[in-house]
Design a protein around this nucleic acid. Sequence first.
DNA 1: ATAGGGTTAG
Length: 584
Amino acid sequence: MVASFPGLLSRGELLNLLHNSTTVSRVHQVHAQLITRALFSDPFVASRLLSTICELSAHVPASYADLVFSQSHQPSTFSWNTIIRFHVRSSNPNKAVLLFARMRQAGVLTDHYTYPFVLKACALLAGLEEGAAIHGDVLKKGLGEDPFVMNGLISLYCKGGEIAAARKLFDGSRSRDLVSWNSLMAGYVSRGDTAEAGRLFDAMPERDAFSWAVLIDGYGKKAGDVSRARDLFDKMPNKDLVCWNSMIDGYVGLGMIRAARELFDVMPERNVISWSILIDGYVKHGDPKEALELFQSMLGQGVRPDVISAAGAISACSQLGALDQGRWIHSYVKKHNILLDVVVETALIDMYMKCGSLDLARLLFDEMPRKSVVTWSVMIVGLGMNGFGCEAVELFYQMERRGATMDDLTFLGVLTACTHARLVCEGREIFDRMRRDFRVEPKVEHYGCLVDLLGRAGRLQEAREVIETMPGKPTSSLWGSLLASCRTHRCVELAEVVVEKLKKLGADDGGVYVIMSNIYAAEGMWNQVWKMRKLMRDRGMKKETGRSVIEVDGTIHEFVHGDCSHPHDEEIYEVLGSLSNAMP
DNA sequence: ATAGGGTTAG
């Protein structure tokens, strides 16, 4: 590598070369040269090397930056600032704060360049105490009117929820600039006070694209008022990419996919974020097929996907059971060196699980260096869903032994796994331990699981007691679940009680009477059956049509209840018939 | 100072 340089370069030439390095491997080459030329001990050279590395922060492993920093002799304020900035930028605020503390311990001078980055780190950590101490420091040094430092403080207080403190600084400042206005406005937006954000917007002496984007996002996504967002969007003079994306995301947030799509289709330029927003919109609002098509056209237009857009597409595959496409996307991202992170890997595991490919899921799971709560939960849910309830519970216990934190969805997963595997005692025990041992407050959904678990096992009275003694108001879905169990276990009396409860809650839709009439039919109570049917007719009730989708060999098939238009229609119904015969 | 990602079952 070193040989690629012609002859020996002078200090100046190397510095120049360094200045023009735009890739990590180029920096490595220059680094090697600096060492062979014994120039690395030159503090100025070392600091230039470090800052070049930090310029490329997105592509540089933190360990490399740390190494170069630790090898420099008596790093200057500039070098300290650089390494702190590096860690802030690579979203490692902990490290940045730590380095700042060491910087002060070492007695190195801190300056107006140091503070904005440390403050940013504190803001990311919501470290208000730390930040307030730094505020004191800033004042002592007389840096309170430096716009960068002050803006750092404003956004620190905004992120920490102390908007009043931010406002006080803002109001009392002589040197506030456009960024200060924008920061404060963003602060109001993030705490949901779009009205005050709007007032600031109107009062601003000048506005830039940030100002508009903050408020478009505030009205649209944060406040759910897309028409105001749209007004603003239409009024904006030179719309930039960000505000198009924010506006589209505003529509997506409310499920207005058509409107989102219309804007997407006419926007002058798109980036991978625009595509992600829409892909995710389709995923979240029930059209995973369209999401995948969109992902493919994105690739077709030569837009390089990143982890986030891939996560959306993979999610779509999970919903569709599209194993082939899911595997294809997996190998695509690997082939194109798109770094997988915990989130996509979790999405992949979920996809493999939902597509019934337990081996591939397990393989990924075991090889993951870092797992999140979601990763564990997805695995537990998947095992349960695929009929491995015992393994799911076992994994839950393993999670406990590892001391991993659990959240409400972990419990939802393990409880549903128990339901599937009829593990009534385990489920009951885990439910009881939720609050006691894990300090996770059970929500209605957890009560729903418990009711389901007990009800399916035929312990109908216990299930009813759970509903009637739970804290808070039981929802109709709890009674609905109990009603389903009443049908399974042919308990007419309780079913009638439940229907009364549902009626009181105004939740007696078509589905309820369908079940009730089935219950009567099973007992041969035909008079009651007719009564139910008549009731439904009189009220014009209909049960929603059942439907499902699955991919086979790359083609996506959709099935709708009662539909006979599939080319393999007869065979399908034959298999279906034999399956339901085989089921207990 | 502004835009995008993973989990329940029915």
